[in-house]
Design a protein around this nucleic acid. Structure first.
Lengths: 279, 279
DNA sequence: CGAGGAGTTGAGGCTAGTCAAGGCCCGTGG
DNA sequence: CCACGGGCCTTGACTAGCCTCAACTCCTCG
């Protein structure tokens, strides 16, 4: 209903979206290389499987929520955010995806995308039709294993989201977000210490369930505590152990996490004389 | 133990809730009947597939986080909670599962359970070994479709969790939780208006990301607004439309999507005067 | 050069967390 | 049998933390 309306509102983009764009460079081989899957030559040479390459500009949708799923995508270059739009337009960000990750797998079994995916920068994906996906799984067992590993990760996403949005302080949520991001960078062979955030503060705010100003303040707090160095979207983790300790802390327990001379001026203490708020 | 006791306290409601529901002769036929899958007789007669029946007492684990997954489970009778335990012992509740739902599917592809599952009342599950699961899918296509539908739902879980834990007021979160629960009751052919909650306030609190006292207050608020009648764990939805309107409201909004106005304000506040809650 | 978005920071009000007390119900043990 | 202890739930009081609004800077883009 609303989703159709939203889809209709962007005809120009849809035209671009649906353009053939032809199977580019290497096709199947490039996809398997991206996933780190070694494949027998005969599997590559056998025809019938089409791997399309699609470029998506920053801020454009890879696909819209509610759209019929015609392909499964693998991020080759770039970063995406996965989100759900409420009826009143509020964007709930569900996660961010980078190189090697699968997009739209959650539509494979229902046929309809339950979420929208938007590029955060100019990006490239490989697109594979469901039938070709099945065929590739049959021909390359290692690919099937990679896909199943990815499926496990998708299923585990709810734990990640719950941990990020749990009832803990904003600084802890941000710390958990950064730790998670850092871990994934490490998995991808990139530096887990220096990161360039592709998403806005607002996107992070939606993802961890706080206001975007609070994200900003939490970055400042983590920096003051010596965990981070922050310069706009460039983040360097200075003290990984302290950051992880912060990410581990919950609200129920005493402030055991930032005991180390973190707070230069305890703002809360200064504000203690805030008269009364009695009814 | 305590759950048993509590269940005993509401005999009239339990009689309604726990109505016979197919006394389950055991085996494959019972499992397929549970899922509403019609199967050819020959598929049932052919041996080789073992469907075990397992009883789990209230407050006991069906399986533990980190355990190797040896079977996939289908809830035949009862209710479970799915949770993740943090290092400091904090229980993050990820969801609740009732009759007909699958438990432990997220371990199928990794071999290890990423979450724990605990019975909220004395319950019964069907257990199926992975190999038998595959075989049953092969023999009964309708079962495979049912399983794929379930997989879609599991993948969509992160959207549900994000909506429940998003940055909105506690009353809205609780309303969303109840609407979701009501919808699932309706799907199962049970009354979507009168519900007996099998989980404690604390479990709900963890699930929607607030303190358990706040859950209590939010129940009271929804009752005062005329949405609900609440008596301990017995909940009756008096005004479904108002409850859903409350569930829809959000606290913030992105200036991105709606080019026009139509700000839905912040709170569903105009619903105030409602004499009493007892119906 | 102005417009506008992204990010930061401050001030203040309000939500919800925390602590506490009390009611209710049960199981245990005297 | 009853007293006791301990869960669960509710409600009240207090207040810490976060949301909101607002101002300002920086940067990009037309």
């Amino acid at each position: 209903m609303t989703n159709e309306a939203i889809a209709m509102r962007v005809p120009a983009m849809d035209a671009w979206y649906l353009r053939p764009q032809a199977a580019a460079p290497s096709g199947v081989a490039a996809l398997l290389a991206l996933l780190g899957v070694a494949a027998p030559v005969e599997a590559l040479l056998a025809g019938g499987i089409t791997v399309a390459t699609r470029r998506v500009r920053a801020c454009q949708n890879l696909f819209h929520e509610g759209a019929r799923a015609e392909a499964i995508h693998f991020v080759a270059v770039g970063t995406f955010k996965c989100l759900h739009v409420a009826e009143d337009g509020y964007e709930q960000v569900l996660g961010f995806n980078g190189r090697g990750e699968v997009l739209g797998y959650d539509a494979m079994f229902s046929g309809v995308h339950p979420t929208s995916v938007v590029a955060l920068e100019d990006s490239t994906v490989f697109a594979l039709a469901p039938a070709d996906l099945t065929e590739l799984c049959r021909r390359v067992p290692a690919f099937e294993r990679a896909l199943q590993r990815e499926l496990s990760r998708q299923l585990a996403q709810r734990v990640v989201i719950a941990n990020l949005m749990a009832a803990v302080s904003a600084e802890v949520r941000l710390a958990r977000f950064l730790v998670h991001l850092s871990d994934r960078m490490a998995e991808n062979g990139q530096s887990p210490r220096r990161m360039l955030l592709r998403m806005s503060r607002r996107d992070i705010a939606s993802h961890i369930g706080v206001a975007h100003e609070t994200v900003s303040r939490s970055f400042s707090a983590l920096a003051q505590w010596g965990c981070l160095a922050v310069c706009n979207r460039e983040v360097e983790i200075l003290d990984s152990e302290r950051l992880r300790a912060c990410a581990r802390s919950t609200r129920g327990l005493t402030t055991d996490t930032p005991p180390t001379r973190g707070r230069p001026t305890l703002r809360a203490a200064q504000l203690s004389d805030s008269s009364r708020c009695a009814a």
